[in-house]
């Protein structure tokens, strides 16, 4: 899958020219969002000019493509807890003007001063934790309004050692209390036991 490249000649990723527009290869084996799109995800809520809160950005591979999607007008807050991967993300954010690094624990409720009062259009939740849904609801309460969207990539093997189907059923039931689910997409063959859920708050 190829994505329009915002920054010319990045050098880090494989770049390719298509019809004189610079494009970049998006690897579905490395990015869960891309795996969802490759499997035919219909309702991708990220549009040009959106502001996105990306929880669990790590080194910023997927984030860099999200920053391409939202364009110059948009903004992407990349949140991660590890200072090691944040180092690399800071370097990336210096190349890309619309990336904002935030070293913060998305799981805890303690407030991040600079993020107060910020409302975003889309939350992408990519933190593989046992209480993934809980993290999403916490953050949605703070950052999301009605008619906005979230993308949750659920890693079932990090929740319990049951079959993936059972866990997905359980977690969607939990989600439906606060959210309306628009679409679900399994990520086979790119990621095992993962599911991508798109929805919006009630």
């Amino acid at each position: 899958m190829y994505n329009k490249n915002l920054v010319r000649e990045n050098g880090k990723f494989y770049t390719l020219d298509l019809n004189s527009k610079e494009r970049r290869l998006w690897d579905p084996y490395r990015s869960k969002l891309c795996a969802g799109l490759a499997n035919g995800l219909q309702s991708l809520p990220i549009k040009e000019g959106d502001s996105v809160l990306y929880l669990g950005c790590a080194e910023g591979y997927t984030c860099s493509f999200v920053s391409d999607l939202v364009g110059v007008q948009g903004i992407v807050y990349g949140v991660d807890i590890s200072p090691y991967s944040m180092q690399k993300f800071v370097l990336l954010s210096k190349e890309r003007a619309n990336l904002v690094p935030v070293l913060w624990d998305a799981n805890k409720l303690d407030k991040y001063e600079l993020l107060e009062g910020v409302k975003v259009d889309v939350i992408v939740q990519d933190v593989a934790q046992k209480n993934q849904v809980e993290i999403l609801t916490k953050n949605a309460r703070q950052f999301l309004e009605k008619n906005k969207h979230f993308i949750l990539s659920l890693k079932t093997s990090s929740i319990a050692q049951k079959s993936a189907k059972e866990i997905i059923e359980e977690e969607t039931r939990k989600l439906e209390k606060d959210f309306e689910i628009l679409e679900r997409k399994r990520l086979e063959p790119f990621e095992k036991k993962h599911i991508l859920i798109v929805g919006s708050p009630r």
Binding site: P83, V90, A97, V100, P101, L103
Partner: peptide, 15 residues
């Protein structure tokens, strides 16, 4: 402008 604040804070915390 806003981004500068974030950058400063994260760099400080990383250090």
């Amino acid at each position: 402008m806003e981004k500068e604040l974030f950058l400063e804070k994260t760099v400080e915390e990383i250090k």
